[in-house]
């Protein structure tokens, strides 16, 4: 099941809700359905130009491409951090539209991990994780703490319970940020260049957490420059350039047999 990673750490009330969701999920295999997304920034730059994206349950999709190709913007559109100009997005059966309630609901289903971690600096590690389950899922503090403890153990940060983010290394902060996103028990996790701001020796720890997550069945959309990770963990690879999806396909055939010239050119430069 998708929630293996989480179930061991979750209080009973929460498992209940995620089981219900699993039943719902089984009717729709696709967690993310996006069609014809266009996004133009106020300065006139076209970030996304008719992008389609379908992510199935338990799929790990890796988005690669040169900087400025719209990868991050695509991710940010998927949980409504950026408003789209055209197209439509359906997440876990909920349409992402102007309805504010839907938007909030989708954000509880979509976890996001940022390049710059964005932990709340005025809260301890524990408080960072507990905040959203308590405020949004409305679960009791003791339950939220139990949940947080389990998640911190998973990411190897349980000894930093009372620490403030400023006292952690980048890699540690990012692992806490992953735990924070997981605490909402999202149906899908988005990783926006989660390792790009890290020192080389810290990247490994974060990637390991992401690999464990993928192995345990989490649906993931990962924007990254780590080709090793893409090859090892990704089910699908999506190559973007100039706001368009140039090529996408199963990982092995994508890397071994790219069909598009631009893809080949890009891969030859980074591999």
């Amino acid at each position: 099941m998708r929630d293996i990673f989480l179930t061991s750490t979750i209080p009973s009330v929460l498992t209940q809700t995620s089981e219900n969701r699993n039943q719902k999920d089984s009717q729709e295999q696709e967690i993310i359905q996006a069609k014809g997304i266009c996004k133009r920034f106020p300065n006139g730059i076209v970030a996304l130009d008719h992008v389609d994206l379908c992510i199935a349950k338990r799929e790990v999709a890796v988005i690669i491409g040169p900087s400025g190709s719209g990868k991050s913007t695509l991710l940010r559109c998927l949980n409504g951090l950026e408003e789209i100009d055209a197209g439509h997005i359906v997440i876990d059966g909920i349409p992402l539209n102007r309805n504010a309630k839907n938007r909030l609901l989708i954000r509880t289903e979509v976890g996001m991990v940022f390049q710059s971690f964005n932990l709340f600096p005025h809260m301890t590690v524990a408080e960072n994780i507990i905040l959203a389950p308590q405020r949004v899922r409305k679960i009791r503090k003791s339950q939220a703490e139990e949940l947080a403890r389990g998640l911190l153990q998973k990411v190897g940060m349980e000894q930093k319970w009372d620490t403030y983010p400023a006292q952690l290394s980048g890699g540690q902060q990012q692992r806490v940020a992953i735990a924070r996103a997981l605490a909402m028990q999202p149906a899908v996790m988005l990783f926006d260049e989660a390792t790009s701001a890290l020192d080389p020796e810290m990247i490994g720890d974060v990637l390991q957490v992401m690999k464990d997550l993928a192995r345990e069945g989490m649906t993931m959309v990962v924007v990254t420059h780590e080709m090793g990770f893409a090859r090892e963990v990704g089910d699908t690879v999506i190559f973007m350039e100039d706001g368009q999806v140039v090529e996408q396909g199963p990982t092995t055939s994508f890397f071994d047999n790219p069909t598009h010239d631009r893809t080949r050119h890009f891969l030859s430069k980074i591999l």
Binding site: L81, R107, T108, F114, N118, F120, P121, L131, R180
Partner: peptide, 26 residues
């Protein structure tokens, strides 16, 4: 920083809760 808002929003917190727990205390 904008990232604080985005982190808060991405966790499903409303604008009001984001102000109250994330932005105002900082």
């Amino acid at each position: 920083h904008r990232g604080q808002w985005e982190a808060s929003y991405s966790l499903g917190l409303s604008t009001w809760d984001s102000y109250r727990y994330v932005v105002l205390p900082q």
